[in-house]
Design a protein around this nucleic acid. Structure first.
Lengths: 222, 222, 222, 222
DNA sequence: GATGAATGAGTTTTCATTCAT
DNA sequence: TATGAATGAAAACTCATTCAT
């Protein structure tokens, strides 16, 4: 059906001779496609069509659909690193810092749905690609945990956060935050359909954010 | 030619004229396959191979791969209805009832991974099938909400649960419980790989359960 | 898709225990289906669905799709024999008799489209089934020719029809009449689409009939 | 693995990179197959086998069996346009011109059976494809009509063709010519089997041609 | 580097036909 | 006789991948 789109080989000067750009565009298109349909549902053709290149280029740069998939996953992680810049948590009282951290996570996940969806798809299918993450990627996640650890430690030290034997660890809190954040994307359709609440919609945004903040804060607060 | 291939009338209970059974078996196999790979990744052949039937029968009963998918989704929901029997919540003090409810949900989701995964896949892809759920299916989900509503009302009445203006609604609490329960399946691979915690494994079972119970209880408790 | 139409086996007393009727109904349904789609396009399932019987009966009575096809073709010819009753041609002057014969043929073909279409399909595909027609069927066609022969002979004897060496034979005239009659069905769609004339429609009925009568009469008239 | 299967660069002219040629070959094969069996009876595999290509190429260029069918029908019409060159009718007396026109049509249809059969099949099945003909294709058919119109006008002007109120129109004559020409292909098998005359065979060629010419000429002649 | 054409191995779907009751 | 369930073979269609230029 999509055969014969012609296009000649003259003018289109913008499209040729820029390997890095081509590679980058392919990755972006791949992230979108894989994020939309998952590894199994994605089509190499569709990825090539999203930008203006041919399948051949995909194989030239990435060798195979799976190769592209892994590269897309890694790139998606990489693009993630841009955040988590200094939120200035150290200067805030512990609870405020925690709220800020939660808020930051919620905002990040909400504005990076492709990434979140990619991670969800990866988990539903074997998650093999996850096993092959770079140490950098792993470190990244650990970084978020460290930040959280600092805030919690400070809160405990100041006596405002629980410090009993069953007090939640940083990993516990991270699990709770992640659960609440991911659920918005993972079950958005069901939740909206069954209960009429759009977890990522503007109407419920404040309410959902407050709910999640409260849930987290109450978990750690004395 | 090759007569006498027998098969006699011994046991071969799987192969014979029992339409309901055949249909049922196909559905079970379909639930497994779709739950493993999603609609796009599932193979009609693979479904037929799982039980002892042919691809042809699937089309005989369900018309198309998508028809089977919808039937499998509906059946999965249907099989869900068995639970939610009386947990005897009414006889427990509110907090205990709430813990019991959380525990029941956690246990249910953990033992019905195919269903959970099916729902997750459905959400990640368009979620169109969800739009077509029976009223019965919808009612089922609402039922869980009603149960929760009762417990919360009782807790508020007894003065043990929050009743302020920003107190969480039953839907809020439901969202939190669902988030925490689904996350175990939705992000199990990532979490294990990055943090070494198997959210559905035996080792961490008690800890995770306690964490989730606490999170929920602390959210509503005064 | 069409599976499970149930229907129980009680009341429907009209439908069971009448072999001849069942056979006859199958044939009628087959004539319709084959006439609509041709041998290759027809579906055994579709034939079974047209009446209220099962595919099994078709195989019981006719052995195979082809067997049914041959039977349907023969039956269609057989049902044709009903016509050609005495048109009273002998009592008319030759030209009037000829016009009457043409008119009768036109009317017959117009009201027996399934038969005409069956013949056309048969001709387009190998026409093998035609080779196997009964002598009865052949005689039938010859009968029409004989009638024509009589009229022409009478016309020639009366000096109103051509009798020169290049005068058309009965077979020639039959060919012309058949050509003009069949074309209406064989090319109806094209003719309507390209020239806006519906060869079998009511509007043009009289005009087309007159045209064909004239064509034939002028061919033989002195 | 199995390298060295050669194929070198000898002749294999059929297999190489010439999209237009490939496309063209597929179309030719399709015209043959569809003309032999009709849309329903044709097999995509069979079309691929006719030339040296794979089924896959057919989908590459035409998207679907039906897409190919429509393209084949259009192409068949297109190839038709080559004819109808100047027959020099204007230089002949009207009757001779008319005879020449008839003769040309007969010859054309006899030597383009695939086209004729395609049109017949199209008419027998819904004729939907005909509705979608280009204006060019329509114009082509109208062209034949114009030619006829000229001849008839000239004959009437010269007083050799009928000019009364019931004189046949150009469309009428076209209908008659088409009927007589198409019948040879449409009912060849039946006619040969039942009456022993092969309407397209060499033996009867002259006789049939004369008969048809006479039929047409006598229709319009004073 | 870049491009369109080509391909083999699946994957879904359809269909005539047969079996068990 | 009658019926619904079952089946194997083939048909349409799709997809990741490679080749020639």
């Amino acid at each position: 059906m999509a055969a014969h789109q012609g296009r000649g080989s003259q003018d289109s000067t913008a499209r040729t001779r820029d390997p890095d750009r081509t590679r980058h565009e392919i990755l972006s298109a791949a992230i979108e496609e894989f994020s939309d349909k998952g590894l199994l549902g994605a089509r190499v053709d569709a990825i090539a069509e999203r930008i203006q290149t041919t399948k051949r280029m995909i194989y030239y740069y990435f060798g195979s659909k799976e190769g592209l998939y892994r590269a897309a996953l890694a790139e998606s992680y990489r693009r993630t690193r841009a955040r988590e810049q200094d939120l200035g948590l150290a200067d805030m009282p512990p609870e405020q810092a925690l709220r800020e951290l939660v808020r930051s996570t919620l905002h990040y996940d909400a504005t990076h749905e492709p990434f979140v969806r990619l991670v969800l798809f990866e988990n539903l299918l074997g998650g093999e690609a996850i096993t092959q993450l770079d140490e950098e990627d792993r470190a990244l996640n650990r970084g978020a945990l460290d930040l959280l650890d600092d805030v919690l430690a400070r809160g405990r030290a100041e006596g405002v956060f629980r410090d009993d034997v069953s007090a939640p660890t940083a990993l516990d809190v991270h699990q709770v935050i992640s659960s609440l954040a991911f659920f918005r994307t993972a079950n958005r359709a069901t939740f909206r359909e069954l209960f009429g609440r759009d977890l990522l919609g503007d109407e419920s945004a404040d309410h959902v954010r407050d709910l999640i903040e409260d849930t987290v804060v109450r978990l750690v607060r004395i």
